[in-house]
């Protein structure tokens, strides 16, 4: 797992061995059972979480029903980054989809790393840029794409999700009903047969 982390960090910034070691020291292990809540409404997201084994779901519940906003599986980070940055209460929830082995990185430790060296500042900037691009793209797609286009985009970008998640959660993530998802899957399935 350490190699996965160090490799993913090094693709963003040219960290020294000393800096990587410092980063690893700040990661704290955490185990969750299926359905445990990592984050809930009203709590500040004080730690970003990195999935070593298992899967997490990020959703909103307050006045919107149960709307799935995102997921993270092995090697992926998750958290309410807005709550983390602003140190304000999150309106959202993060739950374990299965038993999980996780690592957490606290806001305080992140600030310490930023003070330590310029490369950590650059890492923080590049992470925020990545998250900005993802949320801006997601915002635009929500307004412009049809559900079928969002399904195809998901199929292309994160195909493994379909093996890990039940249909009703994928439907929720796409903002549609399970019946609509079945219909779209059948249509897209036919499209592929016609092409292939």
């Amino acid at each position: 797992m350490y190699e996965v982390i160090t490799e993913s960090l090094r693709t963003l910034v040219d960290f020294s061995d000393e800096e990587l070691f410092l980063f690893m020291q700040k990661l704290k292990p955490l185990s969750l059972k299926k359905y445990d809540l990592y984050l809930k409404e009203g709590r500040v997201c004080n730690n970003m979480v990195l999935v070593s084994k298992g899967g997490l779901r990020y959703f909103s519940k307050s006045e919107k029903g149960d709307h799935t906003i995102g997921f993270a599986f092995e090697g992926e980070w998750l958290g309410d980054y807005e709550s983390f940055l602003l140190q304000t209460p999150s309106p959202d929830y993060i739950e374990a989809l299965e038993d999980c082995e996780l690592y957490t990185l606290s806001y305080t430790d992140m600030q310490t790393l930023y003070k330590h060296s310029q490369r950590f500042e650059r890492f923080g900037r590049l992470m925020a840029e990545k998250l900005f691009l993802a949320t801006a793209r997601s915002k635009r797609n929500l307004m412009l794409q049809t559900a079928k286009e969002r399904y195809i985009a998901l199929l292309n970008s994160r195909p493994h999700i379909f093996e890990r998640l039940p249909q009703h959660l994928i439907a929720s993530y796409l903002g549609i009903q399970p019946q609509s998802l079945s219909r779209i899957r059948a249509e897209v399935g036919k499209m592929k047969v016609n092409i292939g």
Partner: peptide
């Protein structure tokens, strides 16, 4: 570098808030 990070973090939070509103 720090200034750049803090600015883009603000921008991210602004867009994230709008995105959450669209879902609603």
């Amino acid at each position: 570098e720090r200034f750049g990070r803090l600015i883009i973090e603000r921008v991210f939070c602004g867009v994230e808030a709008k995105r959450k509103k669209i879902i609603a």
